[in-house]
Amino acid sequence: MSEPAKITLEVQRYHPEQDSGPRWQRYTVPYTAEMSVLEGLQYIKDHLDGSLTFRWSCRMAICGSCGCMIDGEPELACHVFLRDYAPGPVRVAALDHFPIQRDLVIDHSDFLEKLETVHSYLIPAEERTPADGTHRQTPQAMADYYDYAQCINCLLCYAACPQYGWHPDFAGPAALALLQRYNLDDRDGGHRLRERVIDAEQGVWGCTLVGYCSEVCPKGVDPARAINQNKAGSAARYLLGWWRPGRRRGEDRE
């Protein structure tokens, strides 16, 4: 049997207790055609260097844990194959725009805090009790938001968004796409609550429609579309605010 083909991986390492900053470490990994980049990282951890740290769980682009920068592009490590980068070196780094906890593991608390602000849960339009039974809707009504409901919170879109990189206050693609997912749900009545986020500087107006978020999304969510669907409505509310009594434009609404 012939020797297996080999690929060089340059992996970003950072152990805050000993490193002053991130550094690169090279590993040579034998690979087969069906091996993902995640499997390459697992080979390193199992056979070459047990100290390499990265998140993973499902291995099939469902859990959204293994997002990282692969040759500078945000990707799920389980969703791309080593063969496409052979013979390397292929650079694997932590997701852009997030603080690194250790090696490829990022701290995503900023996203989780933003997710809380967009009310990304069903706020029933009518008062209901469990006795009312299942809150049903037609397949057509579900189709309105279905694509936006596919988000797995992998944060590739945040790593792709230049505006989030420069203005970390921006609510960002995934949070605003999830906001739109619930706004488009015909069972939901939380629009008014979410307008506060939409209309804010940190809301849809923080987006300049670069569109890279939609390009890198492994689930086809199209956050750029979700965000920009809201600009016309937000602009209309702004103009109406000029003569709506008892409300000043630009006031801080907490």
């Binding site: 702004y238 434009r249 609404r253």
Partner: peptide, 8 residues
């Protein structure tokens, strides 16, 4: 959150 003045 501060309202954006970008709409006009």
């Amino acid at each position: 959150m501060k309202r954006s003045h970008e709409p006009p």
